[in-house]
C-alpha cells in the first residue's frame, strides 16, 4: 500500500472517532492555509536551496554544502513526533 493510502486511511479512522469540533478545526485550518497563497510562494524546483547548518539529535552540526559533496540530498520537512498522535489524542 502506498504511503498516502496508509495516511488517508489513518486520517479517516481518526476523524470518525474525533470530536466534530476538532475535525472542523483541522479542516478550517487547512482551507485557510491553502487560501493564504503559501503554496504559490514556496521554494520550488528550479531555485537554489538556501545554505544551512543545523544540529542533529546529538547536537552535531550538519551542513548542506558538506552533504552535497557526496551527492544529491533529499530534504524532508516534518512537524514533529507529537503531530502523528494529535488526531488520536483528541478523540471523544
Amino acid at each position: 500500500m502506498s504511503l498516502n493510502t496508509q495516511m488517508k486511511a489513518l486520517k479517516h479512522a481518526a476523524e470518525a472517532g474525533a470530536l466534530p469540533s476538532v475535525v472542523g478545526a483541522f479542516r478550517r485550518a487547512e482551507m485557510a492555509l491553502r487560501q493564504s497563497g503559501i503554496l504559490e510562494r514556496a521554494l520550488r524546483a528550479g531555485e537554489r536551496m538556501p545554505e544551512f547548518t543545523l544540529p542533529d539529535t546529538r547536537a552535531r552540526a550538519v551542513a548542506l554544502a558538506r552533504l552535497l559533496l557526496r551527492g544529491p540530498v533529499v530534504v524532508s520537512f516534518y512537524r514533529g513526533d507529537w503531530a502523528t498522535i494529535v488526531r488520536w489524542s483528541s478523540q471523544r
Binding site: L39, A42, L43, R44, R48, M49, L64, V74, V75, F77
Partner: peptide, 27 residues
C-alpha cells in the same frame, strides 16, 4: 511549522524536484 515539503537538491545546490502540500496526509 513547515508545510509537508520534500526537496531533492543536486550537487550544485539547485532544487531539481519539489513536492509541497498543505495537507500532511499528502506526501
Amino acid at each position: 511549522l513547515p508545510l509537508p515539503a520534500t526537496y531533492v537538491v543536486e550537487w550544485t545546490g539547485e532544487v531539481v524536484f519539489s513536492h509541497i502540500n498543505t495537507d500532511y496526509t499528502n506526501r
